[in-house]
């Protein structure tokens, strides 16, 4: 089963003809993901290494059965691309694009939820279900199939922890990057709920960072609604207030969103929090013993 992406995924890449979209789209296909089409308005009729390029997402859905869209469109046009995908009828939208204005995401967030469409990102590395499908920019080589679900606001930090798990002989059901922006399509709670319901996932590692209150909400959810054990990591203990730390969403506003507050909230709900990525991977390994 896994979550979000699997062997049922039929992928359309919006922006397949751009350099990033092409590179990662073809990598995803090489991994085994069913890539059915690309969309670039005005370039319909072309192809990228045998993948048909269409003018609209609607064509990809109607003619090629696309059910998942990956958005590689530049930020000024990305919101429009996301709306197009939602209206075309895909069930999952994964937006890799970084730099989408936060106000655009407020509206998209409300819109996508009202239509029951699942969205990851923006500013996210995508999702990988090892051995099944990879949609996004996660380096699949460093992960193996297994029972640990991994959900994170960060890319490389997740790869680090996943890599350490792999070296200890532990695999993953699905690795999910929810994105580093202030407003993203799916929250930690949304993904935790999917992991809780996924028979292939037995344990979960949650990787959070400063800014917002999604880790705090996750802590409450885990305590009240999850039976599967979770361990966590939080980045940004030494971040100064008011500074954006790489991710647009990684900012301490006033006294809200600190790493200490998140760690305390998680621990208060009985969730162990590692002080380093390595310790976090070790805590996850302990769960499996």
């Amino acid at each position: 089963m896994a979550i979000l992406v699997d062997t049922e995924t039929r992928l359309v890449v919006q922006g397949l003809t751009g350099s990033e979209g092409r590179f990662h789209g073809l990598r995803n296909r090489a991994y085994g993901t069913t890539l059915v089409a690309g969309v670039t308005p005005g370039k319909g009729g072309q192809d990228v290494e045998g993948v048909p390029v269409l003018d609209t997402v609607a064509q990809a859905v109607e003619e090629h059965g696309a059910n998942t869209s990956m958005v590689f469109v530049p930020a000024p046009f990305a919101a429009d691309a996301v709306y197009e995908a939602i209206d075309a009828g895909v069930h999952t939208v994964i937006a890799i694009t970084e730099g989408i204005p936060a106000h655009d995401m407020l509206r998209i967030h409300a819109y996508v939820r009202a239509r029951g469409v699942r969205m990851l990102g923006p500013n996210c590395p995508g999702a990988l279900s090892p051995g099944k499908a990879n949609v996004g920019i996660i380096p699949a080589e460093i992960f193996t199939p297994g029972s640990i679900g991994l959900v994170s606001r960060s890319g490389t930090l997740t790869y680090q922890i996943g890599h350490e798990l792999t070296q200890m002989g532990l695999g993953n059901s699905t690795i999910v990057g929810i994105g580093g922006d202030p407003v993203v399509g799916s929250s930690f709670v949304d993904i935790l709920r999917l992991f809780q319901d996924d028979p292939e996932t037995e344990y979960v590692v949650l990787v959070g960072e400063i800014g917002g209150d999604e880790e705090e909400k996750a802590a409450t959810f885990i305590e009240s609604e999850m039976t599967k054990p979770v361990v966590a990591y939080i980045a940004g203990f030494t971040a100064p207030p008011g500074k954006t730390m790489g991710h647009a969403g990684a900012i301490i506003s006033g006294s809200a969103g600190t790493a200490v507050a998140k760690k305390e909230a998680l621990e208060a709900c009985g969730i162990r929090v590692g002080t380093t990525p390595t310790e976090t991977a070790e805590l996850a390994a302990e769960l499996t013993r």
Binding site: S154, L157, G180, G236, F237, T238, G246, A259, T275, P277
Partner: peptide, 17 residues
């Protein structure tokens, strides 16, 4: 210097620890 926002934040933390 780190690569990726999360890993870079984590690096700064680890130096402090």
């Amino acid at each position: 210097l780190g690569n990726g926002a999360g890993l870079s934040m984590s690096t700064v933390d680890v130096v402090t620890f």
